[in-house]
Design a protein around this nucleic acid. Structure first.
Lengths: 385, 385
DNA sequence: CCGTTCACCTAATGCGGTTTAGCAACCAAG
DNA sequence: CTTGGTTGCTAAACCGCATTAGGTGAACGG
């Protein structure tokens, strides 16, 4: 025995209790009368074991309730069966959005099926997020990571590539409509143009799950335009985020297409907090020609905005139509209930996690498009006054 | 073989890039001209190394950017530097409450300081939660766990005790005021042999962080009572949860103390969802003698209830006062803003995580009381009509 | 002056798996 | 009856770290 002190931390100390030592493959081997290697082969579906022996080993393993020691696996197998997710949001905006827990819930569904665990970390900012990746990499904690809130100038893909951590970006770092075939993903080596020195030569696979924000924005604007709205403001989220920029660009493009004035149809950026959503709404309603419709980039700001309107005596939807990007129970508890863009967030997470598992299996990188969201018409939108 | 191609997953494939193999202690040893054991001693602050050598080794480790391989540590050191948190909530009620992300955020603060990671899992129900603990135990994934949403009849403490997993229960399984010293910690009902020599010999340490729900409920009821309210309904959460039962009991006791009729002051259980919160409110307002004040067990139901009142033309707080248990931005975006019970949820999580770390260090189990919450008076409560 | 202690370091072992090399038995072919 | 190739298994090395048992030289005490 290597443990000098008689009782190590979680060894069974009570002699009365049944020995609760976790069974190892050696135990199985002894019980089945074979060598540990045979057990390893049998349980990992590798050949070199006869069907009969395999069955017997499986039986004993079952009987003993054996489960692989993840640390030992990680040490020799070079994989930890663990993926990471870092959420970098200032504490202030934490915990109000329904988005993340839904996303995580979907992610887990996909991971659980493969016995892969999720390492989760909440940090304050992007620097801390990068530090977390470095630490996870150095400690071999994770096999890959899921990246959320991609930005227009995002250091993370390059960092993760240099760390050789398989990655799935949830959302898209690209501004364009996303029809380009896997530009940053390092699709096939050899054809890399020399202009981009390192990023194309990515040592780590990186896939992207993208949502067609432009199409979604079009559907919202078309809906409002059809209702006669001509002054529409988009209260956006954090300006650095790629999807914010995409939505802003999409709004501008759509306004141009419809021949609407850029002063009447525009975006205002916020930090996603209820305070800034309310403040922006207050400012807009105080202008001489207030918008007749406001599109909010999340549910919390939409609810906050609706409250501001109510507080100022601006009837919704009579004088102001409201659309929330992202549905949640919040949008249904207000009065009137908010028209909102419904996305299958859990499904989004599931898709991302499945893609990461594929990458870990060696599948080629991809750009996957998430299901198109749809606009759920409720009472907060109506004809322009 | 897990990977078809000969190159292993994270071996440096690009000759141009610097060899990105993670440095090991052996590398440090070679570079510092000592044996690997000396490196281990030096980096773990064990004696047996001279100050000079120790400094040199530290320097080299720093220079190489060495970080311990968590798998190897876990394998030999018997600790994974990882703790687990399982959230068992039906998907429907997920992601609306602000509570969990705040809690997790606080937990991480405490864990990050000690380089302990958090394994996070969202599951559907209690059975799945228990299965997760078993799996984590079998796979040696975690050194300990944080348990949330304790119930009155809770199988988890016994399970975790039998698995010898150090545990901190966030909230309290007890119904009473909580002065009893950790009674349910080591009791394993089924396996207790008749001799039973030492009941204090608990197989796994279990600490509890408890919040004084009774005092909190008293402060709310006293506030409402002082405002003249005599018909007060408490729209509670899930009936199985210990804190729900505590609040219900506290309400009953307080009503008795104030000499209020149990038909006028009572609790109604829900599942925390906005739907049930709204439905309960609707039913209450339709009775011949509707309550003049409602206390909601979470923010989402409170907002939903306020919306129902608004929809039915019941002025808040004119005809109905509303109190939300747990503050969040939600309570500030409604109109009027909701009076709510403010707790330091992140602090709660921090405390729990610190306690778990203490347990892992071998500290004795404790019952810690969380900071008392306070009632934030806003516009949703006023004198009874 | 020699045995003992002590400080400092090295060698070796084990954690629980995976993986490669090797070995015995069996079968078909020569 | 030997040869060569499978088949089915075992032995052994290894992953990166912690730990324990040795082993060396210097200081020390008698």
């Amino acid at each position: 025995m290597t443990t000098g002190p008689p009782a190590s931390d979680d060894a069974p100390r009570t002699p009365t209790a049944p020995p609760r030592r976790r069974p190892t493959m050696k135990d199985i081997a002894a019980r089945a009368g074979v060598s540990p290697s045979a057990v390893s082969f049998a349980l990992n579906d590798r050949d070199g074991v006869s069907p009969g022996t395999r069955a017997r080993i499986r039986e004993v393993a079952e009987e003993l309730g054996w489960q692989p020691n993840s640390a030992a696996r990680a040490l020799s197998g070079e994989r930890s069966d663990c993926v990471g997710l870092v959420l970098a949001r200032p504490a202030r905006t934490l915990g109000v959005e329904s988005f993340f827990l839904q996303l995580v819930s979907g992610i887990q569904e996909a991971l659980a099926a493969r016995r892969v665990a999720l390492l989760f970390q909440v940090v304050e900012d992007l620097d801390a997020e990068c530090a977390t990746y470095r630490r996870w990499w150095a400690e071999r904690r994770v096999d890959g990571v899921l990246v959320v809130d991609p930005r227009t100038e995002d250091p993370r893909p390059a960092l993760l590539a240099s760390l050789a951590l398989p990655t799935v970006v949830i959302g898209d770092t690209q501004l364009g409509p996303g029809t380009v075939a896997a530009p940053g993903a390092g699709a096939t080596p050899g054809t890399t143009p020399p202009q981009q020195p390192t990023p194309t030569l990515s040592p780590a696979p990186l896939s992207t799950i993208w949502a067609d924000d432009a199409a979604a924005m079009r559907s919202i604007i078309d809906h409002l335009h059809a209702l006669g709205h001509r002054r529409i403001v988009h209260i956006a989220g954090l300006p650095g985020l790629a999807h914010t920029e995409r939505r802003v660009a999409a709004l501008r493009a759509e306004a141009a297409r419809l021949g609407l004035d850029a002063r009447d149809v525009r975006s205002v950026c916020t930090d996603y907090s209820d305070e800034q959503g309310a403040e922006a709404t207050r400012r807009l309603l105080a202008t001489p020609h207030p918008p007749t419709a406001i599109v909010y980039d999340n549910d919390v700001m939409a609810v906050a905005g609706a409250a501001v309107a109510a507080g100022r005596g601006v009837p919704v939807p009579g004088a102001l139509s409201i659309v929330a990007w992202d549905d949640s129970p919040l949008c249904r508890v207000t009065h009137p209930r908010l028209t909102s863009l419904v996305r299958d967030t859990a499904g989004f997470g599931r898709l991302a996690a499945q893609e990461l598992l594929s990458l870990l299996d060696g599948a080629p990188t991809r750009r996957l498009q998430a299901e198109l969201p749809h606009l759920e018409h409720r009472e907060s939108t109506t004809r322009a006054p």
